[in-house]
Design a protein around this nucleic acid. Sequence first.
DNA 1: GTGGGCGTTCAAAGCGCTTTGGCTTGCTTC
DNA 2: GAAGCAAGCCAAAGCGCTTTGAACGCCCAC
Lengths: 343, 343
Amino acid sequence: MNLKQLSQMLQLSQTTVSRALNGYPEVNEETRRRVVDAAKRHGYRPNPSARRLATGKTGMIGYVLPTGSAVDIDPHFVEFLSGLGDYARAHELDLVLSPADAEDQETTYRRLVANKQVDAVYVSSPRPQDSRVALLDTLGLPFIVHGRSDGFDFDYPYLDIDNEGAFHDATRLLIQLGHHRIALINGEDRETFAIHRERGVRRALSGSGLVLPDHQVWSTAMTEENGYRAARRLLEGGAAPTAILCSSLIMSLGVARAVRELGLTIPGDLSLIAHDDVFPWLKPENFSVPLSTTRSSIRAAGARVAERLIARLSGLEDGARGEVWPVDLVVRGSIAGAPTTGL
Amino acid sequence: MNLKQLSQMLQLSQTTVSRALNGYPEVNEETRRRVVDAAKRHGYRPNPSARRLATGKTGMIGYVLPTGSAVDIDPHFVEFLSGLGDYARAHELDLVLSPADAEDQETTYRRLVANKQVDAVYVSSPRPQDSRVALLDTLGLPFIVHGRSDGFDFDYPYLDIDNEGAFHDATRLLIQLGHHRIALINGEDRETFAIHRERGVRRALSGSGLVLPDHQVWSTAMTEENGYRAARRLLEGGAAPTAILCSSLIMSLGVARAVRELGLTIPGDLSLIAHDDVFPWLKPENFSVPLSTTRSSIRAAGARVAERLIARLSGLEDGARGEVWPVDLVVRGSIAGAPTTGL
DNA sequence: GTGGGCGTTCAAAGCGCTTTGGCTTGCTTC
DNA sequence: GAAGCAAGCCAAAGCGCTTTGAACGCCCAC
């Protein structure tokens, strides 16, 4: 059943039927009722391919997926997607993932725009002066960034959490507990979130006249193994930290393993606070010693990004509003007062 | 630059230009060269929206994403996606994720077909007599299943790993090491893979005159917490197992935690073998005691599914071939001979 | 010399929508 | 009673591609 058939059946022109269904004002309310009713009865659904050829609108939002044998997709992605999908579902909005060479995403973005393949995109894991943001800005494709890209002289829409504030507050708490040697096991320092977190730690330390020596900071991909390695190095070196901040639960698994291997205990020898993106399959309260965390649901962020993208597409949101969410600091058993040096 | 402009510029009809670019035989090779050359020089790319309206082909493969606040997307998904995307990239094939109410995916599949939104789909986490498989079969939408759905009287294309064989072999090895009381911590038993694994364990046991009592089997969502709970129950009950097979690395984290808490050791008190889908961020060799595993890269499976889907779309593959991959059994420190009962 | 066949090209008809511009009709306004 | 206007509807022209059916020129065979 297509528009032509429907309009013939109703003894109306395609124009009128189309307008009636799309809510245009120049159609008699009585007529509209007839049309809408008939459409529903016969299960008419406009053909999206035809509509998109005519309008250029696709009803899809895009995401450029960096791929390559050496490229690992962040496991957080799936959780974000969960929130995004859950929200988008209600709007019958599909998500198109365009795989791209991680080293050349620009080509793919340009293709999406040139072919009008999506109405909007979202960008994740942004870095400072992220080229994707600059590109999208000039291409004029609506977008929203999950995270932030510092260093531009223009504004753009984003949704981020207060990484700096979260790690500042966590650090300050550790200081108040008497810790002076605090280390940071971070994500890769190309990414904005990692930079912000480190900044938060430094700010808190310097607020108390302390510093974060470079050798007390590890910035690597957030795997269990890297967490382990960083913790070993930190704890075996001279002037081992008495507290560690860690950027992910997965890394914390490695930290906990290192601590066990070295015969140390949490929080007796080491206090530990990690960032928790709230996974259903790994919970900080279930660590051998329940883990204190800075917590922010990445799934909720996904839903919010979907909400804002949809608002942008329907003209309800415009401008370049940045939105920063506060982060919970959840105290559990993994932190305690600093051990008294010597005995 | 569209087809019309290009054809005018070449003093040819749109027909000829279109045919030249699409490799039709009835066009002079000399002409074709001219056309292809001009197209490249002017960066002409056919508009996909127009093409899909004309042909019904979309150049996209679909995946129906079950969503809902209570629905957790499997973290394996992202790894599978990684492989799929990496392969699809070379073919400029996009993936469209259609979020659906987890309880009613049928509506979404029907929409995809009615609107010709995708050329093919893949299905994951199948269950016995999975309604999606039956539906797709009748709808006639090309598809491929990652995993298997038993109980149909028709064939369909799938890619699966030999779950039964893997767990059979792992179990047999434990038996050969002298274990008699072997337990299974499995994924949810609605899913085919879990059923096959359990079957593998039972078959190996009965091959040696042993059995798997129902209270030695736990089938739940594969979270760390569920792994922990299952292990606690198993190890604290009477006739505790001396060996456990576990369906996922994440669950194994919980098992290891339970073992630690109970003051037991691996492999002294308990041998442990888990299934490893090969995540970049959590590796079995990095467990406190390196974990023996049944191993199969889910990323490789993603790439293979993409390859087969593309082959189907271009007519290179047809029929309903099932493909079953063997699974590696990798022995590491987590297994040993059964402890001698009593002392 | 005519007819058939082959190689090559083209005009035009879709695909199923949206949207422009115009045409009625009936009513108000002076 | 002419002019003006709004409401409601329509025919037709896109959107940019693919594909059908036909035409054209040329060569070969009989």
